Amino acid sequence: MEEGPDEGAAVAVSANETSETTPSDTPSGTLTSQQLAAIEDEEVLNKLLDKAVDFDERRMIRAALRDLLKKKREKREKERGSRQDDLRQQALSKAGTGRMGMNRGGQTSNHQHKSHMHSQFSASTTSSLSKTTDSMANPAIATAHQSSPVAAAPNMKNVKQMLLDWCRAKTEPYEGVEIHNFSSSWSDGIAFCALVHRFFPDAFEYSILNPNARKDNFELAFSTAERLADCPPLLDVEDLLRMHEPDWKCVYTYIQELYRCLVEKGLVKTKKKL
């Protein structure tokens, strides 16, 4: 019999068991690629993907979802480009007018203003990320290990791989996300955003996220998970920004907690351990 964790034990993941259901108005039969391409709602495609069991059908749904995300991103980039062109024209127009009255004192003042803007950021102090690492011995996890000391070590390794597989399965349709581990795969914050977006697709627009805006990505993912899933922000954004790669133990702990919160919300189904 397949074993799964209870709410107090380490997270054991069943990647294809979720509470997401296909809307009643979605056809139950296999959809064609043309029909899938006509769907413009990410949530509908995600639910279809969760329900699909046929390999070719899953492949078509994933392709449709990737195309939809790409289409939204391109549309947003086009709109952003138009706004930037308008702003550039306005700036050139103002510069032409202002240059007539520019004096030496004005140039000096502008230089001082820029210097002030560049110097307003300071190094932050040592934070709570190391505390998160030290607290990896989660009381609930420790209790589970104590109750089964012989199976504790191999079970922990198995749970870690199952959780990694679950993350990979849930973020598979998202462009720019490739999860291979609990460290470097999460360094730009995009993977966190994709995982949260999978369960809360209306919370934010994934297609406009910038992998280079690491701070924005971390803050968006953690705040959304806290607001909608009641998942505490165990990771400190400033610590993550200072690191080239996050500590895998810290990321693993956070993903465990997010999974547990999703289970409590009824968004993920898991079997109780007998």
Rank of each mutant, 00 (worst) to 15 (best):
I141Y: 00
I141E: 01
I141P: 00
A142W: 00
A142P: 00
T143H: 02
T143M: 10
A144R: 11
A144L: 07
A144Y: 04
A144F: 04
H145I: 03
H145Q: 12
H145N: 13
Q146M: 13
Q146C: 04
S148R: 04
S148N: 12
S148E: 12
P149I: 02
P149Q: 15
V150Y: 02
A151I: 03
A151C: 00
A151Q: 11
A152Q: 07
A152T: 04
A153S: 03
P154R: 08
P154D: 11
N155V: 00
N155Q: 09
N155S: 12
N158R: 04
N158Y: 01
V159C: 08
V159M: 06
K160R: 07
K160A: 06
K160V: 04
K160N: 06
Q161G: 01
M162L: 12
L163K: 03
L163T: 13
L164Y: 06
L164S: 08
L164Q: 11
D165V: 00
W166E: 09
W166F: 15
W166A: 14
C167L: 14
C167N: 09
R168I: 07
A169S: 12
A169K: 11
A169H: 12
K170Q: 15
K170H: 07
K170T: 09
T171W: 07
T171H: 09
T171N: 14
E172M: 11
P173S: 14
Y174C: 06
Y174F: 14
Y174D: 11
E175T: 13
E175D: 08
G176A: 10
G176N: 11
V177E: 13
V177Q: 05
E178K: 02
E178T: 09
E178R: 02
I179P: 03
N181R: 06
N181C: 04
F182D: 07
S184R: 08
S184T: 09
S184W: 07
S184C: 07
S185H: 13
S185Q: 13
W186G: 02
W186T: 02
S187M: 12
S187W: 06
S187Y: 07
S187F: 03
G189S: 05
G189H: 05
G189W: 06
G189T: 03
G189L: 05
I190R: 09
I190G: 01
I190H: 02
F192G: 00
F192T: 00
F192C: 03
F192W: 15
C193H: 10
A194R: 01
L195K: 03
V196D: 12
V196Y: 05
H197P: 07
H197Y: 15
H197M: 13
R198H: 15
F199L: 10
F200E: 13
F200I: 08
F200D: 11
P201L: 05
P201H: 05
P201V: 04
D202N: 11
D202C: 02
A203Q: 10
A203V: 06
A203T: 11
A203W: 01
